[in-house]
């Protein structure tokens, strides 16, 4: 049997946690302010900033997309819908042959199906997809979770710059294209 019974010690732990929550200033500043002392965040009033890398929502940089369908093919639950057509663009030099260009008609991501795995962002060879840490896009109707091209492009504004790497890294820091 310990000197102080565990029952009393346990009461001490909860009691001291309560005092720490009510008086976050400690003994020096005994002003009760539980809002500061609590570890929770009162969500709609204050928000925690998610980390830069957080996988919140996928943003589309429309100009870079060539409708190559790689992302749609690699998606594990096939929630990306892409349609595109080819157009003849004016030749680069006068007298040259007209170039072919891929025009994106439709790029939808169904967030009701999306698993937020990030494979599409990774496989995109043209850097058209980016992760944004924005997370407040819930909808009362499940059909509204299908974000179309314009909605996905709007998310582009919320994409943060890539972070620097930790010392000793040999990764190259990527750049987010300006919107």
């Amino acid at each position: 049997m310990a000197l102080i019974p565990g029952l009393i010690k346990g009461l001490g732990v909860t009691g001291s946690t309560m005092m720490r929550t009510i008086f976050p200033g400690g003994v020096k500043k005994p002003i009760p302010s539980p809002v500061k002392g609590a570890e929770t965040v009162q969500y709609p009033h204050e928000k925690e900033a998610p980390p830069t890398r957080a996988r919140g929502v996928i943003a589309l940089h429309e100009e870079n997309c060539t409708a190559c369908m790689l992302c749609a093919r690699e998606c594990p639950d096939w929630c990306i819908y892409i349609e595109g057509h080819k157009e003849k663009a004016p030749p680069r030099r006068a007298g040259g042959k007209p170039r072919q260009r891929n025009i994106l008609d439709r790029f939808d991501i169904d967030y009701a199906l999306c698993m937020f795995c990030g494979i599409c962002v990774e496989v995109c060879p043209f850097e058209a997809l980016f992760w944004s840490p924005e997370y407040e896009f819930s909808e009362p109707r499940i059909a509204d979770l299908l974000h179309d091209m314009s909605r996905l492009s709007e998310w582009m504004e919320t994409v943060p710059d890539f972070e620097d790497y930790e010392a000793g890294s040999q990764q190259k820091k990527l750049k987010v294209p300006p919107t």
Binding site: P50, P51, T52, R53, A54, R55, M115, F116, C117, G118, I119, E122, W131, E163, D164, Y165, E166, A167, S169, Q170, Q171
Partner: peptide, 28 residues
């Protein structure tokens, strides 16, 4: 875990032959 991998619960960070990305600055 989220700061490093981007996902709180489902990191999906491990790749055949290494990892998806390196650690961000200040993480250690």
């Amino acid at each position: 875990i989220e700061a490093a991998t981007g996902g709180r619960f489902h990191p999906n960070f491990d790749r055949i032959g290494g990892l998806k990305d390196d650690l961000p600055k200040g993480w250690i």
